[in-house]
Each structure stands twice: as C-alpha cells, then as structure tokens.
Amino acid sequence: MANILLVEDDPDINAAFRLALSQRGHSVAGCFLGGEGVALATEVPGPDLVVLDLMLPDLDGREVCRRIRAVSQIPIIMMTARGDDADVVLGLESGADDYVVKPVEPYLLDARIRALLRRSSLPVAPAGESDVVTSGALRLDRKSLVTSINGEAVPLTATETRLLLELSKHPGQVRSREQLLRDVWGTDYLNESRMVDASIQRLRSKVERDPSQPKIIATVRGFGYRFDLQ
C-alpha cells in the first residue's frame, strides 16, 4: 500500500507497529531517534508517510516535524501519549497532518494512514470553476494547485491546499468547522474541531501578512471561518 517511516523510540512498540502495518500491506522502516527520522524522511526517494512519536530521546517530535516541514511536505501523523488539547494543537501547528493518541490499535492507525494518503492525493478543480482565485497578494491556481504570495510560491501540504480550496470555493460565506471537517478531512473526523482550528492557524502563518490580524481567512466567532476577497 505505502512506504511508511515509523519514528518511535520504544523498541517493543516500534517492532509491534512495524509488524502490524506490514501485515496490512505497508512497507515499514523504523528508527528510534528524531535526528535519524529527519534524515530518512527527507532523503530521495523518501517514504510516502511518516508516523512520528511526540516524545523522543534526542529531539522533541514537534522539532522533528518542523525540520521535516522545512524541506518536505510529506504527510505526517503525530503519535502522542496524551490527548490534551495543548499537545494535539502544538503537534498540528508544528506541521503534522493528523494525530493519534497512544495506546492506539494498529487497525485504527492503519485507517488514519489510509485516510491521510487519500487526502494527500490532491484534487482537480471541477469544471466550470474559475482557474485562479486572488485575495490581496494571494493567488491560488486551481488547476496547477500552486499558491503564491506576491508571485512567490508558498509550500502548502496537501491538507492545507484542500482547506484553502474549500474555503475559496465559497468566498464571503461562513464555513462551519463541521462543514470543513466533512469536505476536507472526511466523515471519520467529524468530532475533531481542533484539527480545523490548528490547520487554519498554520495556513494563516503561510498566506497572511499578519496572521494575528487575518484579512484573507477571517474567523466568525461561534460559527467558523470565511474566505474574503480583497
């Protein structure tokens, strides 16, 4: 199914997940240190997806994620021992596409891997939609799926591109978190509103001049988010 890199420092958990995911059709390489994970994730050709533990002995998982994101948009699932909002949001804001809370059953991890791989296959804009959407300095080409600011390409993950596409399809209209979860992530994520909030924050950090005072992706308190044309 896919080439997976598992970065997990516990030898028993590492071995168990490698075996379980291999039995589900994946090719799995494992390592125990964050630095090694960065090197393996960014080599060419690299894996299709990274499963990354939050707590590692050499580098914090968030730092590993940031280093990978500096050079690659490869899909990343963060594994955390706690489901606290702070841990999850910080993991997502560091660049992870998804997260699971340990202990996690292998079949659930496999399901999240497959869902993320499907989501990472970037969509083609439906016929009849405008090829280009602009808002201030932002330009989104729906055909090439290239986002740029003042003519300079902005590296977005597949999930961030899907989110921007979905918002820009409804300019001036409020999209609720539930609508965005359904249309960007899928029905399996309908109770994961923090996934939307963290992804919006990361997207703003890339496309807004001042993310603390967004002009393109506005928050409508109590309802959701709105894409504004300028």
Score class of each variant (00 low, 15 high):
R24G: 03
Q213G: 13
V100M: 10
G136D: 10
P155Q: 06
S120I: 14
L138M: 09
P106V: 01
A115W: 10
Q23L: 11
T157V: 11
R69W: 02
S144R: 12
D210K: 01
L49D: 00
L54E: 14
G224N: 03
Q23C: 09
V64H: 02
Q213I: 15
L5R: 11
V101M: 03
R226L: 12
E178T: 15
D183I: 05
V154M: 04
A15P: 05
V174C: 02
L52W: 10
V132Y: 09
A125H: 07
L181W: 06
L190N: 05
D9C: 04
R24V: 03
S130G: 05
T161R: 03
R82E: 10
C65M: 08
G34A: 11
E8L: 07
Y107H: 09
E178Y: 15
V220K: 12
P155F: 05
G151I: 03
V50Y: 08
T161A: 09
E36D: 15
R82A: 01
D131M: 05
A41R: 00
G222K: 05
A125F: 06
G34F: 00
A2R: 11
M195V: 14
I74A: 12
Q173W: 15
G35E: 14
G224H: 11
V196R: 08
E208W: 00
F223W: 13
E8M: 13
V88S: 06
A115G: 14
E93Q: 14
P211Q: 03
I76P: 11
A29H: 13
E8D: 02
R221G: 06
P57L: 07
D58I: 10
F223C: 12
D131C: 11
H26Q: 07
S168Y: 06
M55R: 08
E63A: 15
P126W: 00
T80S: 06
D87N: 01
E8P: 12
R66G: 13
R69P: 03
R162E: 11
D197N: 08
P57M: 04
